[in-house]
């Protein structure tokens, strides 16, 4: 009797099992599907649109076909470069402070601020950078754009640096201190080198994260149809240029937007790959 009931439930259980496991397979498929679609369109449409002009030419006047995104590519490098200098400086040094002086009273407040900052939507950071830099400087500028992006990078770098340093075994620090090395020496030559790979990974991740940001640049770096290397001038960037071209009605600009998207995704994929290599490097040690 009980055996019969048992086998009946067991059949139901087996069916449930199959159905639910099937749904999980389906879920994985659905999760990958949009990626395949997006990458497919970016790759095929982008490749068709990509040519040498794209890298070497300035944008053409409205409605004239041709031209390229040279200013946007170099401008993106410039803005992300500025953001990296600022974000890494503040993030790494601040992170060292948090990890080295965990008992300070203000540490919790700073951690809290970092978490708040990392949850602020990027468009709001653009608004802030506009008010703090563009208006007083009386110029849209690569610097303002870089600062807006640095707002995003700083908390990421800060918290990874802190965590990576905390992961360093306490015995290492104690050994160094016991040998008579001062605290700062210990931090710089004993603790940091061990945490380096982790910090680099965090930094690369942060760079990859901001390289594709558009919203904070809309009213900070603005855009520029000419090459510009001066940090106090409006500067083009790949994401903003893609946005401008995507919402335009011109087919040729759509074509360029796809090419730009391909280059941008390629750059970011490259950064992710570097991150993986850095992680693997750490694993091998």
């Amino acid at each position: 009797m009980s055996g019969l009931a048992g086998s009946r439930t067991s059949l139901r259980r087996r069916l449930t099992n199959l159905a639910m496991l099937g749904l999980c397979w389906l879920g994985a498929g659905l999760a990958v599907l949009p990626l395949v679609l997006v990458l497919y369109y970016v790759a095929t449409t982008g490749l068709r649109a990509l040519n040498l002009d794209f890298f070497t030419q300035l944008p053409r006047p409205v409605g004239e076909p041709g031209g390229g995104m040279k200013p946007a590519i170099l401008g993106s490098l410039e803005i992300v470069g500025i953001a990296s200098v600022l974000g890494l400086l503040v993030g790494i040094l601040g992170g060292i402070y948090l990890a080295e002086y965990p008992n300070h009273r203000m540490v919790q407040g700073i951690q809290f601020t970092a978490d708040v900052l990392s949850s602020v939507p990027s468009i709001v950071l653009g608004v802030v950078a506009y008010a703090l830099l563009v208006v007083p400087m009386r110029r849209f500028s690569a610097l303002a754009g870089g600062v807006a992006l640095a707002f995003i990078m700083t908390p990421i770098v800060l918290r990874t640096t802190e965590e990576m340093i905390r992961l360093v075994p306490g015995s290492l620090r104690e050994a160094s201190l016991a040998l008579g090395a001062p605290r700062w020496r210990t931090a710089i030559s004993a603790v940091l080198p061990v945490a380096r790979a982790g910090i680099v990974t965090g930094a690369l991740l942060a760079v990859a994260r901001v390289a594709g940001e558009t919203a904070p640049l809309l009213f900070t770096a603005l855009n520029n149809q000419y090459l510009n290397f001066r940090p106090d001038q409006p500067t083009a960037s790949l994401p903003v240029q893609i946005y401008t071209y995507a919402i335009s009605p011109y087919d040729d600009w759509h074509r360029l937007a796809w090419a730009g998207a391909l280059v941008l995704v390629g750059l970011i994929a490259l950064l992710s790959l570097l991150t993986r290599l850095a992680i693997r490097g750490r694993a091998l040690e």
């Binding site: 395949v36 994260r209 594709g212 919203a215 995507a246 941008l264």
Partner: peptide, 24 residues
Amino acid sequence: PVSFLVELLAAIPSVVYGLWGLLV
């Protein structure tokens, strides 16, 4: 590979999703 794809999906900038969303 699936993990890598999913992580790549997270790294694609939002403007690229916008481009694809709007035009496709």
